[in-house]
C-alpha cells in the first residue's frame, strides 16, 4: 500500500497546485443550477406542473441544488490524463514499475478529490441547511449517514465508468473533445441536472436499469427522502453490482488495450 499512499499525496499536491482550476470548476457548477431554477420557476409559475412532473416546487428545487452538488462531487477528469499517457507513451513508465496503472489512477484521483471534498463538504452542509430551513427538507441523521456511504460508492462507480471511457484511448485517437461531451451527456443521464423520473415511469425504469443514475440521482433520492428503505437497499445492491461490472470491464479493456499498445510499440 505504501506506493499508493504516496500517489494519494501527490494527488493532493496536484489539486492544490491547480487551485484556480478547482474554484473555476466549482463556480461553474452554479450555472446549471441557476438555469434549472429559472426553468422551474417558469414551468411551475404558469401551469400545474407539480402534478405533471410529480415533484412539488420545493422538492424540485431541492433536487436541483443537491444534484448539481453531487454531480460535481463525483466528477472525474482522469480521462484526459489517461489519454495523454496512452498517446504520448507515458504509459511505459508505469509498465516497467511495480505499480498497477489502474490503482495508480484511482489513488491519484482520490488524492485530487480529497482537498476538494473538504470545501465541497462545507458547501454541501450549507446547501443542505438551506434546504432544511427554507425549502422544508426533512432530515434524519440516519439518512445523512447513508447518503455519505452512497456518495463514496458513487465516487467509486463514477471513477470506474470514466476509467473505462478513458481506456477507449487505446483504440481511438483525438478523444479529448469527445470526453467533454461524454461527461456532459453522462451528467444528464445520471440525473445531475434534473430528475429523470419527471418523464414518466418508462424512463424512470430505464434509469433504474442503467448504471448512470447510481452516480448521482440515487444519492440525491436518499437525502431528499424520496426513496424508501427497500428502494435504498436495492439501490445499494445495484450500485455495488455496477462497480463490479465496470471494474471488470476496465480490466478486460486494459488487457486488450495493452496488447494493442505493446504491439504498436507505444
Amino acid at each position: 500500500m505504501k506506493p499508493y499512499r504516496c500517489v494519494f499525496r501527490m494527488g493532493i499536491e496536484k489539486s492544490l497546485e491547480y487551485r484556480a482550476d478547482f474554484f473555476l470548476s466549482l463556480f461553474s457548477a452554479v450555472f446549471p443550477i441557476i438555469i434549472q431554477t429559472f426553468l422551474w420557476n417558469y414551468l411551475y409559475g404558469n401551469e400545474d406542473a407539480a402534478a405533471l412532473f410529480g415533484y412539488t416546487y420545493n422538492e424540485i428545487l431541492i433536487y436541483t441544488l443537491l444534484a448539481g452538488l453531487v454531480s460535481k462531487l463525483v466528477q472525474t477528469g482522469l480521462e484526459y490524463q489517461v489519454n495523454e499517457d496512452i498517446k504520448l507513451g507515458g504509459l511505459n513508465k508505469y509498465l516497467v514499475s511495480p505499480v498497477s496503472y489502474g490503482r495508480y489512477q484511482l489513488f491519484s484521483f482520490l488524492g485530487e478529490k480529497a482537498p476538494q471534498l473538504v470545501i465541497m463538504g462545507a458547501v454541501a452542509a450549507g446547501m443542505i441547511a438551506f434546504s432544511v430551513a427554507v425549502l422544508g427538507l426533512e432530515l434524519s441523521p440516519m439518512r445523512v449517514l447513508i447518503f455519505i456511504v452512497s456518495l463514496v460508492l458513487a465516487l467509486l462507480l463514477n471513477f470506474f465508468i470514466f476509467y473505462s471511457v478513458a481506456l477507449l484511448s487505446f483504440w481511438l485517437t483525438d478523444v479529448n473533445l469527445m470526453f467533454g461531451t461524454v461527461s456532459i451527456v453522462l451528467v444528464v443521464v445520471s440525473g445531475g441536472v434534473f430528475p429523470l423520473d419527471i418523464f414518466g415511469e418508462k424512463l424512470e425504469l430505464l434509469v433504474n436499469l442503467l448504471p448512470f443514475g447510481y452516480t448521482t440521482q440515487f444519492s440525491v433520492n436518499i437525502i431528499n427522502g424520496r426513496f424508501g428503505w427497500t428502494q435504498i437497499g436495492s439501490g445499494f445492491l445495484c450500485q455495488l453490482f455496477w462497480i463490479g461490472f465496470f471494474g471488470i470491464l476496465a480490466r478486460c479493456m486494459w488487457k486488450r488495450g495493452l496488447k494493442r499498445f505493446t504491439a504498436v510499440g507505444g
Partner: peptide, 8 residues
Amino acid sequence: LQGSLKNL
C-alpha cells in the same frame, strides 16, 4: 505536501 500548502 508541505511545499504545496506553503505555495498556496
